[in-house]
Design a binder for these strands. Structure first.
Lengths: 340, 340
DNA sequence: ATTTGCTTCGAAAACGTTTGCGTGTTGAAA
DNA sequence: TTTCAACACGCAAACGTTTTCGAAGCAAAT
């Protein structure tokens, strides 16, 4: 077991000073050809690699960014990480992943833990609890200390920083309009409680589409799901008691569950019921029938967020052109088998 | 924007030495009650938090572990990360995530990049390419430098280190036996090419179960899939031309694809064809019919891996009790609708 | 008055780098 | 022989901590 070799050890071994070694390895002209070669050969032999921590301390930057997401097992968030990672790596950055588990406290702890020099900046999507409490002091504080933050997907207007989102309202509007264009009128929505920002926005878009087409919004077929564990009965109830023609679900799980319930009651999709989901994940793709959905490009979203963060990090010196940007990633309607 | 305050600044402000400040904050008895209080109050006021990087440099440990996985968008790997993260956090560790994208080179680069002081240890699952090349020098090197590594799921015998796996062979054996017990004889398997370690192990288990039950192994209904993008035709061919009664797929995607093809040709599952999958992911759960599967508890696996790594890190001083352990996580057969 | 011992604090080294600047040596020009 | 550049290298500070050791100050004991 050969331990990592340091500049000091090389210096001692070669009987020169530490600075000579350092400069030699950097090909400084200050050092004679001779010494340079000798040092470089030795360094190569012992597989010298500079210690990253020491460099971080010296440079006051870690080349590491932290992504905080509510849950990694959600396909969408996994794709975002994937996108962040790709762009980060291209630029020589590492990615630390933290999971808030939808908990405000874990979000705060994670941020405080890492904000003390461990990382250069944050990319995050707010936890449900944080959105509910509307308490963003931990984020404000970090920003105030000069550390850049990029919010994505679940964002808030209460914090000024770069953001990357999709136009949830418009996407939902388009999805609903798509159903209307098929001649469907009685269109239900399965959404989440309002404090989840995207749930509210999507519901708003749905409402607007109906209104613009002179279809009366029926509050009875607007389902807002609170408990993400136990919602089958609500959906079953919605489908069975309202003679709906179409269904817009704000996520995959809701959509596929609706499919399952339809099948159980011999309601044919898409003949008797059209279903459209949100988030183009693995479920939508592999369900039978496969689910038409609003595709939210997580990879692109993560990539964009990483790009914005890194740009801000690298341009820090050039004084804050304190203009925060909001990037909107376009969505796409993927037509599959669950709609006619 | 108030920058982070350091010991030095506090010392200067209070006109004491840096060491006095440090000791005061650590409640050292060396320092008088008076000074301690004064320093602590000041530190609190300015929200002093020690710089992690400086601590890492001093302590020669970063309290960070790196997880290298082939793909994060695979549900199983996402659950592993989740498990690692939970245990790591409990023990005050952070988690850096690296994706190899199934590429040998990316695996090497990631490891070399982080092995230079950035992290304390690795948890990893081998990329396909690495398994194919059988080149593990990068891992051996890291271990040789005294950095602990824990391999999980896709492991190799060529590297001596802690490992956490499931008994792929046994799990496949049991799944096959389960089908046999239902009176099914013509059982096909959809597997991967042999260099993917788990694919081979699962196929072996399948073979053994058949043999032990005096069922002749029919090589025609052993499908080994190479191209993970384009395999539908192969599966379709397998199902249509062999009058099979049951199907064992070594992953979710293969299983759900089989389901889809069956449906397309009006083959009823489970009446005409029983299907059993591997990995209890989101697809198996939400497919129609839902898929019986061998559940591979990723959370537990990740948690266990993290525990082993951290134990090795914290017991480093107590001399290497160089016994590497192999932990086997039990699998479970989850019965759902795709089997009678 | 001197010694002892305790309390309270500061200097400095250490972790591993990078880099500006000072300095000693050499050879050539004056 | 003296002077001066150019060259080659080392010193030391800096990044922000922790910790060992030494020392100053002072009161009590001899």
């Amino acid at each position: 077991m050969k331990r990592k070799v340091t500049l000091k050890e090389i210096a001692k071994e070669l009987d020169v000073s530490i600075s000579t070694v350092s400069k030699s390895l950097k090909n400084s002209l200050e050092i004679s050809e001779d010494t340079r070669q000798k040092v470089q050969a030795f360094a190569k032999l012992y597989n010298y690699k500079p210690n990253n921590i020491a460099l971080s301390l010296k440079n006051r930057k870690t080349k590491t960014i932290c992504v905080i997401i509510p849950e990694i097992i959600h396909h969408f968030f996994a794709t975002v990480i994937s996108g962040v990672e790709a762009v980060a790596n291209e630029n020589g950055y590492n990615v630390i992943v933290c999971l808030s588990d939808e908990s405000f406290d874990k979000e705060v702890i994670n941020m405080e833990m890492l904000a003390n020099g461990s990382i250069d900046g944050f990319i995050m999507s707010l936890s449900k609890e944080t959105q509910q409490k509307k308490d963003f002091h931990h984020i404000a504080e970090v920003i105030n200390q000069g550390m850049p933050v990029v919010l994505f997907d679940r964002v808030t207007n209460d914090i000024l920083c770069d953001k990357v989102i999709i136009d949830d309202n418009l996407a939902a509007y388009n999805a609903t309009q798509f159903l209307i264009d098929k001649g469907l009128k009685k269109i239900a929505i399965i959404s989440t409680v309002d404090y989840v920002s995207v749930g509210k926005l999507r519901t708003d878009g749905y409402r607007k589409a109906l209104t613009n087409n002179d279809i009366k919004v029926d509050e009875n077929i607007i389902l807002k799901i609170e408990d993400t564990e136990n919602f089958e009965a609500s959906i079953e109830n919605l489908i069975l008691n309202n003679e709906i023609e179409a269904l817009f679900a704000v996520n995959e799980i809701f959509a596929v569950t609706a499919l399952k319930i339809a099948k159980k009651h011999n309601i044919k999709v898409p003949e008797d019921l059209s279903v459209i989901g949100f988030t183009d994940g693995i479920i939508s793709k592999y369900a039978t029938p496969s689910i038409s959905t609003v595709s939210q490009n997580g990879i692109k979203m993560g990539g964009k967020a990483a790009k914005m963060l890194i740009e801000r990090l690298e341009n820090e010196e050039e004084a804050a052109e304190e203009q925060y940007k909001i990037e909107v990633i376009e969505t796409e309607l993927v037509e599959r088998e669950s709609t006619k």
